[in-house]
């Protein structure tokens, strides 16, 4: 079995993404973003996309790139505060936005990938998030029913992977990637290091290859940092 392709462009060609597709993406802020796939998607010109992603990138990176070119019609996210292009398109009504609590978003994606038809969560009970949704009292506590999310495609970024699709992540770049990987009808993975099967200890695999359809080694410049924070010289800091 060989799921390896040359690059993001070939992965997108094989996946045959059409206008109007729903894509679930890993990443948190600018960390663990499937950046090669996002750039290639921009270059492909497909439009009217629904993107499920915790954040919307910044103006000139991440999903901000696809907002600039107006390829995204709808975003499903938990926090979108770092992007002026987003703000402009949202306020003008060009962009449809569904804000979802972060834990609910992760669990909806998890449910979508795991074949679960929905779940009851205490998150958002008594808030606008619960409006129009079923509320059920379970063991004395109120819960709101949330629906699963599944994508036509999922884009994920990992640190290491092999041609069978097994993936290992690095530090907090893991974030939404393992759940996103499960929730695409077709899942595309980009990795910093494509290694031989067997080089990853089976005990260390985070995303088993069954969830991945195409994999390639991406090309990466220096990683971007959204908020560079340092401890004061000689002191501690949060």
């Amino acid at each position: 079995m060989n799921k390896a392709v040359r690059d993001a462009r070939e992965a997108l060609e094989k996946a045959a993404i059409q206008d109007g597709a729903t894509i679930v993406l890993g990443g948190f802020g600018l960390t663990g973003l499937p950046e090669n796939l996002i750039v290639a998607l921009r270059d492909s010109g497909v439009k009217d996309l629904t993107c499920v992603s915790n954040n919307a990138g910044v103006d000139d990176w991440g999903l901000g790139l696809l907002l600039q070119t107006r390829q995204i019609r709808k975003m499903i996210s938990s926090y979108v505060g770092e992007n002026q292009t987003f703000e402009r398109q949202y306020l003008s009504g060009e962009l449809d936005v569904e804000l979802v609590p972060q834990g609910t978003l992760a669990e909806r994606i998890r449910a979508g990938g795991a074949g679960i038809g929905g779940f009851y969560t205490p998150t958002g009970v008594g808030t606008v998030v619960a409006e129009g949704k079923e509320i059920r009292v379970i063991q004395g506590r109120e819960y709101v029913l949330e629906a699963p999310i599944r994508g036509d495609f999922a884009f994920v970024k990992a640190w290491k992977g092999d041609r069978l699709g097994n993936l290992v992540y690095r530090m907090s770049a893991r974030n939404f990637n393992p759940v996103a990987a499960t929730a695409g009808n077709v899942t595309l993975a980009e990795v910093e290091n494509l290694v031989q099967p067997g080089e990853i200890d089976p005990d260390h695999v985070i995303t088993p290859g069954i969830f991945v359809d195409y994999i390639f080694q991406g090309t990466y410049g220096p990683k971007r940092i959204e908020k560079r924070t340092n401890r004061p010289a000689g002191g501690a800091g949060a």
């Binding site: 996210s77 938990s78 926090y79 979108v80 505060g81 703000e87 949202y90 306020l91 804000l99 609590p101 972060q102 834990g103 609910t104 969560t121 205490p122 998150t123 958002g124 009970v125 808030t127 998030v129």
Partner: peptide, 15 residues
């Protein structure tokens, strides 16, 4: 005002 989103706050206070 521009809504930035709730992030993880709703989950944290609920849980």
């Amino acid at each position: 005002k521009m809504v930035k989103g709730m992030g993880g706050a709703m989950d944290l206070v609920a849980g």
